[in-house]
Design a protein around this nucleic acid. Structure first.
Lengths: 319, 319
DNA sequence: CACAATCGCGAGCATTTGCCCATAGCCTGA
DNA sequence: TCAGGCTATGGGCAAATGCTCGCGATTGTG
């Protein structure tokens, strides 16, 4: 029962959780919390804000906002979607990920709560990462989380937006990282990589996934592929000239959502995109720059589900 | 697409949801929200607080607080529980229901997310009511929600703490209210009531419930049975003298958790308490006054699950 | 049509909160 | 052991928030 012999970090988060509870659930003022926990007012404030910044406090909004419902209905009808969520936008922060992250976490949670074994396949990226942060801690040893693409640069260093490991540790599921770089140096190297037993097994799991969640990347000078260093500016410009519209787990596709036959794609090591009609494949994306990429992916049935925000949804429907 | 032709209430809640979203999810200040929604700062404040008071904003805390974990472990071991949740207490508001309500809603949600048909049986009371308020809106036509007891006074007026109807409309499930008063006037009337086909069907559903959630009432002058007018002060005093320790769905039991053979129980119209070993039967209760009632119920295996708070958990273990 | 009751709004003010800063305690490494 | 740096603490202050009050509009009623 001695709970003070833990690491300071544990105790500190514990206190933060307690402070957050007293603040958000019990509705205390920070002064009252300070008295109850025996610390100064300022420390209580710090604990509460720590609870928020450590994402211990999860807020969700439970009301079907009419405008969002309208938009999701329209999108669903236009593109024949199996999963659709439209969350409110903040006009002044159009790229805010929190909203779609919460919505996507709810979708994941639904699958995770199933008692039957499920396979969940994930892409990478900022949106996926934010989504995983919104998941509650759970204990789901029956499920498997599998990555659809590598999380290494070509030099072996790790990319920062790894979602699978984080998710697996959070929900207590087995996980299958994808032990490859994102792009191979050449086709020969790729052949060798794909020959590995572990890689083949992981790719096979991806094809059987019960839920696939991927980010949608735009093409352009601010594209994730470019910013995160998987592609030089020249390569990007060449792709733009060839009519590339977007990218999902590094597979570059054109405005009709067809995966392009280009030099870059021939080096992409990610699992092949799922065929339409298997499980739900849900894209996760917001932002003005992404509308084109999302529309193309929907048109080509590369994804059959979408989680986005009002502003992006409107942009998708306009035209 | 004209969303302005709804009732003012709908629009108002819509705005409230939007304001709440901008405040809690996007992290805007109320000034910014006011500008974005085109209202005054004060109106924005009102919208945010409306979103809170209408329970559109749900906060949950996702951290295993060590002390609570210790207590739940100890309770679980001591009483052999199938479900156990201990939430933090606010020492200055020992009867605060929000905490256990959130925890209980999470338990319900887990069952509701099942794709298979489930039967959920509920008691009544303030705690149950608070719990249902914490449920998100869902669409679960596959499940059935059934009441274990009536929600009428003997004169036919409704009691205020009806959980079943509220829950069913919130989660979109079929529901089976219990069309009887809580206590019959005499044994003869009870026999007639229990002869009704609908009542027998509802009671039969209760015995097959996959999850039963009930409040635990104490015995005494502040007891719910007494305060809500189901029992006169004299009857209550008589029961106390006979050694009554608590009450679940109006069935009064003694300190060993045995349902008593007394005049009152012979008039109780509620479904018989579930036999141990069927589904999980979860009790929901906090408060100094309730510790005795809870302990007796646990001892007699009237419940095999418990959702309570730290302070009450400590009291249960002490002794 | 006039009147009364009710409701929502915004001004003003007290409280609460977030944050910066000076300081004190603590760890680290020589 | 001590110097140097690092982190946590609480004071103080500006910003944000919650609340009350009076006003004007709207709705219902005689």
């Amino acid at each position: 029962m001695s709970q003070s012999r833990f690491t300071p970090e544990t105790t500190r988060l514990d206190d933060a959780a307690r402070a957050g509870w007293l603040y958000y659930v019990a509705g205390n003022t920070q002064d009252e919390i300070a008295k109850k926990l025996g610390v100064s007012r300022q420390s209580a404030q710090r604990l509460v804000s720590l609870a928020v910044s450590e994402k211990l406090v999860k807020v969700r909004l439970d009301h079907p906002i009419a405008r969002c419902m309208d938009l999701s209905g329209a999108l669903s009808e236009r593109f024949g979607l199996r999963v659709i969520e439209v969350v409110p936008s903040d006009p002044s922060v159009p790229e805010l990920l929190t909203g779609i992250a919460i919505a996507a976490a709810a979708v994941l949670e639904k699958t995770l709560k199933s008692p039957d074994e499920k396979i969940i396949a994930l892409g990478t990226g900022r949106a996926l990462r934010a989504c995983v942060e919104q998941l509650p801690r759970m204990d789901c040893p029956q499920h498997r989380i599998v990555s659809r693409l590598g999380n290494m640069m070509s030099d072996g260093s790790a990319t920062p937006y790894n979602a699978v490991i984080r998710m697996a540790e959070r929900v207590g599921a087995r996980h299958y990282p994808y032990p490859l770089p994102v792009v191979a140096r050449d086709e020969e190297e790729l052949r060798v990589m794909h020959g590995q037993e572990a890689v083949r097994h992981t790719m096979e799991l991806c094809t059987r996934a019960d839920l696939t969640l991927v980010g949608v990347g735009q093409i352009g000078l601010n594209a994730p592929l470019r910013v995160d260093g998987f592609m030089t500016a020249e390569e990007m410009e060449a792709l733009m000239a060839e009519g590339a519209a977007g990218e999902i787990t590094s597979w570059v596709y054109d405005a009709d959502g067809r995966v392009m036959d280009c030099a870059f794609n021939r080096r992409v090591a990610s699992a092949p995109l799922p065929v339409p009609g298997s499980g739900p494949v849900v894209g996760l994306a917001v932002g003005k720059d992404k509308a084109g990429a999302i529309r193309a992916a929907l048109r080509g049935r590369l994804i059959n589900g979408l989680i986005t925000d009002e502003a992006t949804a409107e942009r998708l429907l306009k035209q």
